[in-house]
Write a protein that binds this DNA or RNA. Structure first.
Lengths: 329, 329
DNA sequence: CTGAAAGCGCTAACAG
DNA sequence: CTGTTAGCGCTTTCAG
């Protein structure tokens, strides 16, 4: 029945004061006799003592906990992001507290409140809301925050994102090259989601001086977007579909397949994100490949910088993605 | 400059003792005047006070933290598992600490040590090691543990897993029906991973009284398993490939595609796990569909039971999966 | 209906 | 080189 072994029992057993044990724990050997050191080390070993992080955290003002708030945890983008973050913190003294917003603003907020009462030391946030005021809570508590994938505006915290605008410019070029005359953009609601906005605006800029027309279908807003989309596909003009995220891309592919719409003959398709399956289906799908693991790593690193310096100017880091050209456009 | 608002400042501002505030926080209104209650509520509201979890945890013996140790966080099975777990704990007072073992036994162990020093209240573990002695640490500390996906043997803790053996029996039936004469099982090392063992043994049992022969290729052990596999595929006997996990399944499909081996004409293919793309490639892939989200939910629920009762007999819960019959076998 | 006081496990002056 | 003391923010007797 191993009673809870605390710093006190170590002190008693080793016949020193708990101060000395505490010093030992924190590597303050400046002036400690080899003998005492040895005795304490032994006792700790024997009794298999682990200092209580709660108590340490209570004294120090920090919890050594890093919070990660993601939009949707069951999502390949997210899981690769988390891999990058976890890897980074593995060899630090920090622990990572991951919370799933499940695409619900209320739930995200409740998660952040929980993080605050954990006295979390820093947060990596994939924000569900565009207005920074929504996150006043974090501003008030002066918690270091780094955003990933998306950012709030006006600018408040550093952000690590894909080069969305830039890459959409490339997509536009591709579409122009291939002589498409009309583009239908498909996305979940784009307002307030900076990554989607940037993808949209990039494409728009890219075709600015052409005759190519753009239509936007925000699929959550439209009763039956599938039928709408199908009805728009005809042979009058050469059309390209641009899906602003992976989920939408694959829904489209599945839809077209089901209705025997031939890609790219009847309609061209390009989109986010590149998936391991993109080259296994036919036609192989042309898609933009992001690097979420690197985004996570860099975000973690930025957060550490901020937590150390305490005084960093917010900056945006853009991680390059790649357009994987295949057969669907 | 919002100074740290503690229970003391609430007490002072509301002109009561911290005892009373504490009672309020813990919902002990048994005998509290409406007026005091109201006043405290107001003060907390005004000062935007959040009790410190550290301090609460220090007093209580528990941290209100649940640890989740997964084999590999960047993996669709895992992310759906985590969704189930996160969902469950969302409306409890517990927080979830997710740690990625990255398929490294050393890293998993280091994670568990960290969890122990967090005085974590319970752990959901997807074990990398089959021998429970490896987890002596957790046994010593008497931490409630529920295993997911796999389990250690001999039996130590409850486990929530897929009905692997059962489903492999079904796979065997299917293979028999289709008149296959030989089965090649492909997997990462199966020793010590109960889910893979059960899939293997289920298939073996299923073909026991037939002439069907079985070969096992453990791909991490073989220099160039791709060539080995290709060399085994000939037209002498009708062969089926059975991939014991998703990653392997898709590697095989990609390999066969690349070498123009026709499925199911040259060789039949079936495997774990069913993925959203299984019906988008041609031929559509026959695969076993697990329910990791449900596994996560049930595991979380079991853990709660154990943490409450303090005295539960370990049990194994098998969550049904489904064989999705398509065209590849 | 409410408060005073002790103490959870640890750290950090300060004092020898 | 080491110990005494106070206190982090909270909960919980015990006493009124």
């Amino acid at each position: 029945m191993s009673k809870k072994v605390t710093i006190n029992v170590i002190a008693e057993t080793a016949r020193v004061s708990k101060t000395t044990v505490s010093r030992f724990l924190n590597g303050k050997f400046d002036n400690m006799s080899e003998e005492t050191k040895e005795r304490i080390a032994q006792t700790i070993e024997n009794l298999d003592y682990h200092p209580s992080r709660q108590a340490q955290a209570l004294k120090a003002k920090n919890s050594l906990l890093i919070g990660v708030s993601v939009a949707d945890i069951s999502n390949t983008y997210t899981s690769r992001l988390l891999k990058g973050i976890s890897d980074y913190f593995q060899n630090t003294i920090y622990q990572v507290l991951i919370m799933d917003g499940d695409n619900s603003i209320a739930r995200e907020y409740s998660n952040l409140e929980k993080m605050v009462s954990e006295k979390i030391d820093g947060i990596i946030l994939q924000p569900l809301v565009h207005q920074p005021e929504h996150y006043q809570l974090l501003i008030d508590e002066k918690i270091p925050v780094v955003q990933v994938d998306r950012y709030t505006e006006p600018f408040t915290w550093s952000a690590v994102v894909s080069d969305n605008f830039q890459k959409s410019l490339e997509v536009a070029e591709l579409i122009i090259d291939k002589k498409y005359e009309e583009i239908i953009i498909l996305a979940n609601h784009i307002n307030g989601v900076s990554s989607r906005m940037n993808r949209y605006n990039g494409l728009k800029s890219g075709v600015e001086n052409t005759n190519i027309s753009i239509k936007l279908i925000e699929i959550d807003d439209i009763e039956n977007w599938q039928n709408l989309l199908l009805s728009m596909i005809d042979s009058k003009t050469k059309k390209a579909l641009y899906a602003l995220n992976g989920q939408v891309l694959w829904e489209i592919i599945r839809l077209l397949k089901k209705h025997n719409v031939s890609i790219p003959d009847d309609v061209g398709v390009i989109g986010y994100d590149d998936d391991m399956f993109a080259d296994m289906i036919s036609p192989e799908i042309t898609a933009v490949s992001q690097n979420p693991q690197e985004i996570g790593r860099i975000a973690a690193d930025n957060l550490m910088q901020i937590m150390d310096n305490h005084t960093t100017v917010p900056k945006t880091t853009r991680i390059p993605s790649t357009v994987q050209i295949r057969e669907s456009l």
